[in-house]
Computed example of a mutant assay.
Amino acid sequence: MKEITAAQLKQMIQTGERVHVIDVREDEEVAFGMIPSATHIKMGDIPERMNELDKNETYVIICRSGVRSEHVCRYLEAHGYDVCNVIDGMLGWDGELE
């Protein structure tokens, strides 16, 4: 499984790289802020919503600490998706929030 840090993700966004970020935290967690370009799909909703994702794109998956996002990455990889886990999650994010 591909992995990056929150700092590497921030750098990718700042340099204008096209990045598809999926935030898999719960509603009450994202209420405190999420990465501006991220799409919110709760971990539990991934199975029913993965048809919204394009298998030709790469998705960067983030949660609070990197554990749930790792599980989501493993699940999506098993279904043929190209994913990358943010290993330190939002705990490592020091960038802008919305």
Rank of each mutant, 00 (worst) to 15 (best):
M1L: 10
M12L: 14
R68W: 05
E17Y: 02
E77Y: 04
W93A: 05
A7P: 02
H40V: 09
V83Q: 03
Y75V: 06
G66C: 12
M90S: 08
C84E: 09
E52I: 12
Y59W: 09
I61E: 11
I62R: 12
H71T: 13
E57Q: 14
L76S: 05
T15D: 14
G16P: 06
L53G: 10
K10F: 04
K10N: 11
C63N: 08
E28F: 15
P36H: 10
Y75W: 13
E77F: 05
R68M: 08
V30M: 01
V60S: 10
D23H: 00
L91T: 08
H79R: 12
D54W: 11
L76A: 05
S69E: 08
E26C: 00
A38I: 02
E77G: 07
G44I: 06
E57F: 06
E70V: 02
E96Y: 09
H20N: 15
R49S: 11
R68I: 03
N85S: 10
R25H: 03
E3G: 04
D45N: 08
S69D: 06
I4Q: 04
R68C: 06
N51Q: 14
M50L: 14
D82E: 13
A78W: 03
A6G: 01
E98P: 10
E48K: 15
T5I: 06
N56I: 07
E3K: 11
Y59K: 09
D27Q: 13
D94Y: 12
L91Q: 13
I62G: 14
A78K: 11
R74M: 11
P36Y: 08
T58N: 13
R25I: 00
A38S: 15
V19R: 03
R74H: 10
D23A: 03
H71V: 11
K55V: 12
T15V: 14
R18T: 14
R68H: 07
T15K: 15
G89Y: 05
G89T: 00
H40K: 09
I13E: 05
I13G: 03
E57P: 08
D23F: 01
R74C: 05
D45S: 12
E98F: 10
C84T: 15
R64G: 15
E96G: 05
Q8Y: 07
E3L: 04
V24L: 01
V30K: 00
M1K: 08
Q8G: 07
K2V: 04
K10E: 14
C63Q: 10
V19M: 00
G80V: 00
Y81L: 02
E70I: 04
V67Q: 13
E57G: 08
Q14L: 15
V86Y: 03
I41N: 06
A6Y: 01
H79Q: 12
E96F: 09
D27N: 13
D45C: 00
G16V: 02
Y59V: 06
D82Y: 03
C84I: 14
Y59S: 07
S69C: 06
E98W: 05
G33H: 01
I13C: 07
A7L: 13
G33N: 02
P47S: 09
A78C: 01
